[in-house]
Simulated scan of single mutants.
Amino acid sequence: MSINNHKQGIARSFSRAAQHYDRYAAFQRYCGERLRSLIGPRRSSQLLLDAGCGTGWFSRCWQREGNYVIALDISAAMLVIAQQQHSAAAYIIGDIEQLPIATSTVECVFSNLAIQWCEDLPQVLNQFHRVLRPGGILAVSTLAYGSLHELELAWRQVDNNIHINRFLPQTDIAAAFQAYNHKIVIEQKTLYYSKLIDLFNEIKGVGASYLYIGHGLGLTSRTRFRALEEAWPRHALGLPLSYQLVYGVLYRD
């Protein structure tokens, strides 16, 4: 499948989730707040690009602090929700690997859990760096190899198909940042669910079920569902699902 077809598939997946995204996005909000804390205090009245803005939750945060926000997303339906909530000053449908933003335009780029959907991380960082003004800052969060580990292990007990996307190793993500003045923070976050159906509903609810290769989260029968639940590792707090998080802050010299 071509890159363009993948991008269309990703956009469709997030568009289907747009209406109910915020109901399931507690983890995304956690990561975004963590990322905002790493940037530190910023003066207001800045031109800020929220790249992969979704429904505009963090666009609204930045806007409330007095910034002029450009909300960009690959999903038209997500941007509709963001616009309905008056999240930003401008809205752009676009791909962060080919940013439709002029060079040296914005003072801050904020991108929360979006770049793991891209094909070429060095290209993404190059694009972000290009649109920043001198003295500007980029803050991104992404998922690394090892994320959804429990999901992968449990599926292996049910069939031999691929059911999760491959995430870049932390070392590859760090290497992509090496060309720039930057800092990186690593975090592991484990969520717990009382029922497996709640876990699946959350992944699908935020639009994160698109697969480049494989069979997605679909379950063909109750028997397969029970087999997956029985194969899941147990914890006193519930069914665990782990994420390997990488936060990167890049400074434009």
Results as ranks from 00 to 15, higher is better:
residue 1 M to I: 10
residue 1 M to C: 09
residue 3 I to W: 10
residue 6 H to L: 14
residue 10 I to L: 09
residue 12 R to Q: 13
residue 13 S to H: 06
residue 13 S to I: 07
residue 15 S to K: 04
residue 18 A to K: 02
residue 18 A to H: 03
residue 19 Q to R: 15
residue 23 R to F: 12
residue 26 A to F: 12
residue 37 S to V: 08
residue 37 S to H: 13
residue 44 S to K: 15
residue 49 L to G: 00
residue 52 G to C: 06
residue 56 G to Y: 01
residue 61 C to Y: 12
residue 63 Q to A: 13
residue 63 Q to L: 10
residue 66 G to L: 06
residue 66 G to P: 03
residue 68 Y to E: 13
residue 72 L to P: 00
residue 73 D to H: 05
residue 74 I to K: 00
residue 74 I to C: 04
residue 82 A to T: 00
residue 86 H to K: 13
residue 88 A to C: 03
residue 88 A to S: 02
residue 88 A to G: 00
residue 92 I to P: 00
residue 95 D to H: 06
residue 95 D to W: 06
residue 98 Q to D: 14
residue 98 Q to H: 15
residue 101 I to L: 03
residue 102 A to Y: 10
residue 104 S to M: 09
residue 105 T to L: 15
residue 109 V to N: 00
residue 110 F to T: 01
residue 112 N to G: 05
residue 113 L to H: 07
residue 114 A to I: 07
residue 115 I to K: 03
residue 119 E to V: 11
residue 119 E to C: 11
residue 126 N to K: 14
residue 127 Q to Y: 07
residue 129 H to G: 04
residue 132 L to G: 04
residue 135 G to C: 06
residue 139 A to W: 02
residue 144 A to C: 10
residue 144 A to F: 04
residue 147 S to G: 10
residue 151 L to I: 09
residue 152 E to Q: 15
residue 152 E to Y: 12
residue 154 A to N: 04
residue 154 A to I: 05
residue 156 R to A: 14
residue 157 Q to C: 12
residue 158 V to D: 02
residue 159 D to A: 07
residue 159 D to N: 08
residue 161 N to Q: 14
residue 164 I to C: 11
residue 167 F to W: 10
residue 170 Q to I: 15
residue 171 T to F: 11
residue 173 I to E: 02
residue 174 A to H: 13
residue 186 I to E: 13
residue 186 I to N: 12
residue 186 I to T: 13
residue 190 T to G: 03
residue 190 T to W: 05
residue 191 L to F: 08
residue 192 Y to L: 07
residue 194 S to T: 12
residue 196 L to W: 09
residue 200 F to G: 00
residue 200 F to S: 01
residue 206 V to G: 01
residue 206 V to H: 01
residue 209 S to T: 05
residue 210 Y to R: 03
residue 212 Y to F: 11
residue 216 G to T: 05
residue 217 L to K: 03
residue 218 G to R: 12
residue 218 G to L: 09
residue 222 R to F: 08
residue 229 E to V: 08
residue 231 A to W: 01
residue 234 R to A: 15
residue 238 G to W: 04
residue 241 L to N: 01
residue 241 L to D: 01
residue 242 S to L: 09
residue 243 Y to R: 02
residue 247 Y to N: 02
residue 249 V to F: 03
residue 249 V to P: 00
residue 250 L to R: 01
residue 251 Y to E: 11
residue 253 D to C: 11
